[in-house]
Nucleic acid binder design. Structure first.
Lengths: 344, 344
DNA sequence: TTGTATGCGTTATCAA
DNA sequence: TTGATAACGCATACAA
């Protein structure tokens, strides 16, 4: 087990001082004679020298690292989002420390502490909704925070990248109303999340526009984790007057919901028209292929990274930035006109 | 933007020296009078002090961090694996720096350099197959390397955690042979990967046992990324004498393969019996539910972490460790006896 | 039991 | 254009 060379080893081998080496390492931090620069470069290469990140951070006071805090990588939405972000970050030379919260504010709090320890210069996160003071403190300490997908309204001065939640929910609801449905169920995230609230609003708005009453029993704002989505679906199906259409408005709930439909032998769309959020590849493989709201993951990732990096370099105007990207509705074959829907 | 307190601030506020604070921070690194300890703890809490990770690493020479190098988080197998590993690591107080290689040895090399810069004390990785010297160098510098899922045989002295690849492939092949199939196609990873080779061997072994000839044209060892799996399936279907059964032996190839089957209107299992590797939740939602080889992700994750952590603490015997976990075969409804298979 | 002093590897400041 | 040298924040050997 060898010891990795340090800047001093390089300096010695190249017959110069550490300052010179440091200067070739960090261009435009000072002048270096061409001849010496070349020699230093040669030695660096020969020794396989690489500057220790810890030392740089200690000296510089901050790390070229960002924290990525998502709830759960087993949710394909976050997995693909993380994939894009890690990828995009790498291409900008910044590393990503990954933490998951499992939707638990307590774990989230721990993660934030850890990121603070690491002196990350930025954080991209899907907040659970809690830890308001902690987030604020993080910002106060100079960490650039960007929320993606969700946000916390109480927190001013934080950048946010999300899809047009209100609009997406409204458009899918309108689509179903256009097919003649009047009893449309909505399974979505808890009211404690910004997405949950926005999507319910969109759903309501569509009803209002169509002068259709909203049956509150058809709106199920349930937790993301566990089988809450499936249970909501089960309970909806058991209603005396069950819905003829269903919108599952959160990726985390789609799988358990669809599973329950399959288990119950519900025929799609003959018995029930279905729209789900997020274009997971498998939604197209089902019979029938599911109509979906496609969330443009790469856009979310790119913008989020653009924001953190921009802030890190101080190249962004002061105020908080809110970026909403459009989510497309992809009609496939899981929705039918009410007239063709079997009533039980 | 405040400045975070340092150990000196704590020491000053508590009226003690930095060494005392350091000692309460690192128990059993030295004695501290109970009264002082309490006071220090109080001040730490009051100031919200947290030791800077960079300083610790610099001083200690190594980080409480491991690198996780997987090919691609948009592959649900790796996503779920990463989820488990991150989770498991957190519970042991170690952070995870995530890097993806996209199956590209060049990117992998970059990742390894980066991890070296960070002085990680361990790496859990799914190697692309290249960079042999680089991996060796990493080990040489004291980084504990654990390969998961795949391995590189040329690299001695590295811990490996994988499923019983040979056996899984053999068992699924035997199952199909048991149903009377004689023309069984195999789509699997490239020969440059250990899993690709092992699974082909298992497939061959099953044939041998049954005294069945192997048609080399039915074995398709193709790249993981892109649509190679789908293309292989397309080409298999177009054969003069197409297979009556298909094993897709790698998660990364399942989606494109199944998509192609759906596109071509192939009826499962009437036209073709199908077994795929890895129990993605959606395989159960398809009609019919797909028979799968279930890879026990949590076992892989737990063992991998156990190994790195064990090595980090020097609590493991010298030699390299090979852990193979059993993968269950879950028959569902995507396979039919040859007798009931339509011939075209 | 406590405090002082030194080192960890870099960057940055300032003289030369 | 270069080279000493002082931070950066923490751990630790050693002296008290």
């Amino acid at each position: 087990m060898k010891k990795a060379p340090t800047i001093r080893d390089v300096a010695a081998a190249a017959g110069v001082s550490v300052s010179v080496v440091s200067r070739v390492l960090n261009p435009d931090s000072g002048p270096v004679a061409p001849a010496k620069r070349q020699e230093v470069v040669r030695v660096i290469d020969e020794l396989g020298y690489r500057p220790r990140a810890a030392a740089r951070e200690l000296s510089g006071g901050h790390a070229l690292t960002i924290g990525l805090v998502v709830t759960d990588l087993s949710n394909p939405f976050f997995a693909r989002l993380a994939d894009r972000i890690v990828w995009e970050a790498r291409s900008h030379g910044v590393q990503v420390v990954l933490m998951t919260t499992q939707e638990d504010p307590h774990l989230e709090a721990e993660s934030l502490d850890t990121l603070l320890d690491r002196s990350v210069s930025g954080v991209i996160a899907t907040p659970t909704g809690g830890n308001i003071e902690k987030w604020a403190r993080l910002q106060d300490l100079g960490v650039n925070v960007v929320f993606v997908d969700r946000t916390i309204e109480e927190l001013g001065n934080v950048d946010v990248v999300s899809i047009e939640n209100f609009d997406s929910a409204r458009r899918s609801t309108e689509y179903l109303i256009g097919l003649g449905h009047t009893r449309i169920a909505l399974v979505t995230g808890p009211l404690s999340t910004s997405t949950g609230r926005a999507r319910i609003s969109g759903y309501r708005a569509a009803h209002e526009t169509a002068s259709l009453p909203v049956d509150p029993l058809l709106i199920r704002d349930v937790p993301f984790r566990g089988d809450a989505g499936g249970d909501a679906v089960g309970s909806l199906l058991a209603m005396p007057q069950p819905p003829t259409a269903l919108i599952v408005a959160n990726t985390a709930q789609v799988q358990s919901s669809v599973r329950r439909l399959v288990q119950k032998g519900v025929r799609i769309p003959e018995d029930l028209s279905v729209i789900v959020f997020d274009d997971n590849p498998w939604t197209e493989l089902m019979t029938p292929p599911l109509s979906v709201i496609r969330q443009p993951l790469d856009m979310l990732a790119v913008h989020a990274l653009e924001l953190v990096l921009g802030r890190m370099q101080g190249k962004l105007p002061e105020g908080p930035r809110l970026i909403e990207v459009k989510a497309d509705f992809l009609p496939r074959n899981s929705c039918a006109p009410l007239a063709q829907t079997a009533t039980r």
